[in-house]
Design a binder for these strands. Structure first.
Lengths: 192, 192
DNA sequence: GGCCGGCATTGAACTAGGACAAGAAAATCA
DNA sequence: TGATTTTCTTGTCCTAGTTCAATGCCGGCC
């Protein structure tokens, strides 16, 4: 149950055996069926979840029902709306399972106590957020500067396993193009 | 010289008088003329700079010379390519002054020693990055989901002082639209 | 096995925004 | 002050991507 996350922790921080077992003790293990909405717009996000198994999507919806996928997340990723989690304010995104999921969950209180017991994890979480920020910066650039085709090619290169796991129209909504146009891009690519 | 940053620090962390003066002691004060490139693509970013005075732009350029402005920053902002700064790896962005600037600078070493002397600042920097991440998430959404006009209106609402300080075509490159089209959007808005 | 709902494809008509070009206006500087 | 460079505007034509609608497809479920 903790294999995956412990391997992860060993690679991302160096904790003593006691620290690691304390960490494990405060995690809550939960499973969720496919298509469960873990966070609704307007709710406060009270989890920071490590994906032990499964696939999750974070997305926004505007007034007209237009969806933008912010992120897909699979095994070994942390998922949360950090702004909402951290400031305990209503989120403006949705988080939804795309497959049956096994999650290891930190609540705001357990994270708080984790950080006070193991202060060096402050650093790991900071780095996690930094990485996230930096890759989002790069993505914004590509979203603005490149064609639909290049975005798609870049996507399958960066996330080669995702297309097998999630419906294609969600990928379109990640790339910021319509599902129909993604289909056209793909058939054009296939002809080469 | 330290007024502005000390006010900032008092609002964002609570340090003792000694900690604050230690903090001041490791900052390096520097001024730069307008249009100085502080960081070139390919270089390692070795500063995290607090803007005491002036205005700065961070941007990407693609192979065809197409520019995307990632961020404008003015007084009270921190500016850096954190990924490059933190991992000491080449940056893929540019950072440039748009006005004459007064900066208070942390080097990687001084930040390191700052964090080991005043570990609670780890938290302040993490929160800074989190805020940044969260606002970038919102921006990506708007970039994809809204029209040029709405993006522009949103921009002047969020950053009302920026349009007076920076050339309009840079704003266009922030919004992800052409300078010409921004001009058309503006004349259309002016007619109402 | 048949039906149903989500998903992908394709085509035709349309549009937001881009590219280019040429001036006008404003800022910079000697 | 005038000269030069940078910025902004306006018009025309063009295209990448959208919207809408129709069709087919696959997988799940009774």
């Amino acid at each position: 149950m903790f294999d995956r996350i412990n391997t992860y922790m060993i690679n991302h921080a160096n904790l003593t055996a006691e620290e690691l077992s304390y960490f494990n003790s405060i995690l809550q293990f939960k499973t969720f069926p496919k298509k469960t909405i873990l966070l609704h717009e307007g709710e406060i996000c009270n989890f920071e979840a490590f994906i032990n198994k499964g696939c999750i999507r974070m997305y926004y919806i505007d007034e007209n029902g237009f969806e933008v996928t912010l992120q897909f997340a699979i095994e070994d990723w942390w998922v949360s709306d950090i702004a909402s989690f951290h400031d305990q304010k209503p989120s403006n995104m949705f988080i939804e399972t795309l497959e049956e999921c096994e999650l290891l969950i930190l609540s705001p209180q357990s994270k708080e106590s984790l950080l006070s017991h193991v202060p060096q994890l402050e650093r790991m979480f900071r780095i996690l957020v930094q990485r996230n920020l930096s890759s989002l910066q790069g993505r914004l650039f590509k979203t603005i500067a490149t064609s639909a085709q290049d975005k798609y090619l870049d996507f399958i290169k960066r996330y080669p396993t995702i297309p097998q796991r999630v419906p294609q129209h969600y990928i379109a909504s990640y790339l910021g193009i319509s599902a129909e146009f993604l289909s056209k891009v793909r058939t054009k690519l296939a002809k080469k």
